[in-house]
Each structure stands twice: as C-alpha cells, then as structure tokens.
Simulated assay, not measured.
Amino acid sequence: MLWFLAACCVPSFLLSYFGTAALRRLAPRWGLIDQPAARKVHVTPTPLGGGLAIFASFLVTVGAAQALAWLILSTDISLPGLPPELRVHLPGVLYRSQQVWAIIAAGTLLAVMGLIDDFKGLPWQPRLAVQLGIAVALVAGGVRATVFVDAPWIGAIVTVGWIVVLINAFNFLDNMDALSSGIALIASVLFAAVMLTCVAEPRWLVGGALLVLAGSLGGFLCHNRPPAKIFMGDSGSTFIGLVLATVTVLGTFYDESVAGQHVMLAPLFILAVPLYDFTSVMIIRVSERRSPFHPDKSHFSHRLVELGLDRPYAVLTVHLATLTTGLGALLLYRAAGWTEALILVAQLLCVLAIVAILETVGRRRNGTDPGSNG
C-alpha cells in the first residue's frame, strides 16, 4: 500500500509544485491577474492560473499510469516492486480507461472555459449550459449512480445534478486562500481511504485517481497557503469539482453489494460542508432576489471572519469541519445496518447545525440577516 501511495502521490505532487511555480512567473506576463475588489478578500493583485498546474499534473500522471499498465500487459514484463494483487487488476484499469479519458476530456473543456472566464469573465448562463451538457454526456457514457433503485433514469438525473452541483460548489468555495483546494485535498484523501481500505475488494483505479488528485492539490497548496502567491482560478476549481463528482460516482455507487445500501451516503458525509455552503449561499442570494451565481460574501468562511477569526483560522475551521463530517464516512462502511448509520447521520446533522449557528450569528453581527435589527 505504501508503494501504491507513493507511486500515485509523489509524481503528481512534484509536477504540480514545479508547474505552479512556473505559472507564478508566467501568469502576470499573460495578463492572468486577479485584482482586488469589494467582494474579494485579497488586497494585492495575485496571479491566477494555478488550476492549470493541477490539471496538467493530474493528466500527465494518470496518462503515464495508463501507458505503464498497457506496457506491462502487452509485453508481459515484470515491474520490480509491483504487488501481485495489483497486477491482476491491470486489465480492469484498461477496461475502464474509456470512462477515465471521457472524464479527463470533460475536465479539459471545463479547464479551458474556466481559463477564458479568468481572462475576461463569462456570463453564468453559458457556463451552466456547458456544465449541464458535460454532465449529460458523461452520464450517457456510463458514468452514473445507481442509487439502488431499479429505474435507471433516476440514477441518471441524480448523477447529472451531483456533477453540476459539485462543479459549482468548489467554484463557490474558492473565496479564501487554500479553502477550496484544501477541502478538495481532504475529500480526495478520505474518498481514497474508503476505496482502498473500507471495501471488501480495494478499488485501485478509483483510489489511485483520487490519490493522484490529492498529490496535485498538495503541490499547488504549497503556493496557495496563506498568504497565497497564486490562485487556481475557475480553471482549477471547476476541474477538481468534476473529478471528485465523477470518480466518487464510479467508486461509491458502482457496485450495489459493497456493504449495504447505507454506504450510498458516504459522499454526502465527506462533502457535507461544501454542499451545505453551496446550498445556503444559493438560498440567501435567491431570497434577496439576486442572481444565484453573483459572487458575494455570504459563505461560511466569510461569516467566521465577521465573528472575529483571522482568515487563516477561518479556513482552518472550515477544513476541520469538513474532516469531522468526512471521518463519518469511514465509519459508515463499518456500520452493520441502518440503525448504526442513522446515528452517524445524527452526528453529521449536529455538525451542520453548529455551522448554521455560527453562520447565522455572523450574519447578524454584520447586520445582513433579515431578522436582525442592524
């Protein structure tokens, strides 16, 4: 397992680290600069485009792994250090390669669109239309959740919604240094742990892809930790949202006989905080008769700052809340049935209730809550 972890994480980490360092110098020459504004928290112009390093490191590492698997199987060579239990899964890796490359192709389209948006800004309507088209195409290609019901169309609709929501959730979260990328790193590691240790038969392809993403995010975070030297921009946030959405669908929902139907809740545990933040922000904007995609400071992280936390501590609080709910997913796979699972659900709801209380107090402290006297 340690060999597998190193093989997945180290190459993508190094590629992302040095790629991000290069983009820090190149982005200003290309005009990729995020200027301070009223709705933003940074006060100095900061390079954009770090998401390109995340995307490129993920693409190169996954591509190299696929090429190596093909080489081993086609030539029957013996690779020193390759565990026998992993070698038997190589045909499955190649069998799923079509879906993997469909996800990467969709991610490429999102990264390009995000880069254009970083340069000159795009209206939310065409961006949402492209996201919906990508989600429908991926579902039609077999990337879909079963949600343990007989009607395939229900799983298809759920998957389309899941993909679009996560793409936008991680884009919305990219509002403070290391926030979105840090949450994505936590989610990637937790999902990988589930896929490699919590199921009867480790899912090497899904777990490996998540570890590659974790390595890519780790390399980027070395430059994005407060005070950030570079932002990932829409090209990165939408890409990681897509990868997490699609890979978790393939890994968590693909086999109905994994450990009972309650395991379908695992992605909701790991991504509870970003999903809550996305939902609450959308409700606030719609209730105030504003565009749901118009950026503002309605996020949980902003509320924590309004309560008096410094930004790095606000980000750390959101990270710890994500980790707290996510650890429940590891226990979910060990729950014997729905009784134990519902106890974990109650714990999850308690954490989200704490988040809601802090968020409400933050809004009232700032005088923006409709029920406040401010």
Rank of each mutant, 00 (worst) to 15 (best):
residue 280 S to R: 12
residue 280 S to T: 06
residue 281 V to Y: 10
residue 282 M to G: 10
residue 282 M to H: 10
residue 284 I to L: 14
residue 285 R to M: 02
residue 287 S to D: 10
residue 288 E to K: 14
residue 288 E to W: 03
residue 289 R to N: 08
residue 289 R to A: 00
residue 290 R to W: 05
residue 291 S to P: 04
residue 291 S to T: 00
residue 293 F to E: 03
residue 293 F to H: 08
residue 296 D to C: 06
residue 296 D to H: 05
residue 296 D to N: 12
residue 298 S to C: 11
residue 299 H to G: 02
residue 299 H to R: 12
residue 300 F to K: 06
residue 300 F to V: 05
residue 300 F to P: 01
residue 301 S to W: 01
residue 305 V to F: 02
residue 305 V to I: 14
residue 306 E to M: 06
residue 307 L to K: 09
residue 307 L to E: 08
residue 307 L to G: 09
residue 308 G to T: 01
residue 310 D to Q: 14
residue 310 D to E: 08
residue 311 R to F: 00
residue 311 R to H: 09
residue 312 P to C: 00
residue 315 V to M: 03
residue 316 L to A: 15
residue 319 H to D: 02
residue 320 L to N: 05
residue 321 A to Q: 06
residue 321 A to K: 01
residue 322 T to C: 14
residue 322 T to F: 01
residue 323 L to G: 06
residue 325 T to A: 13
residue 329 A to Y: 00
residue 330 L to V: 04
residue 331 L to C: 07
residue 331 L to H: 06
residue 332 L to I: 01
residue 332 L to A: 09
residue 334 R to S: 11
residue 334 R to K: 11
residue 335 A to V: 03
residue 335 A to G: 11
residue 338 W to D: 14
residue 339 T to H: 13
residue 341 A to K: 08
residue 343 I to S: 15
residue 347 Q to K: 11
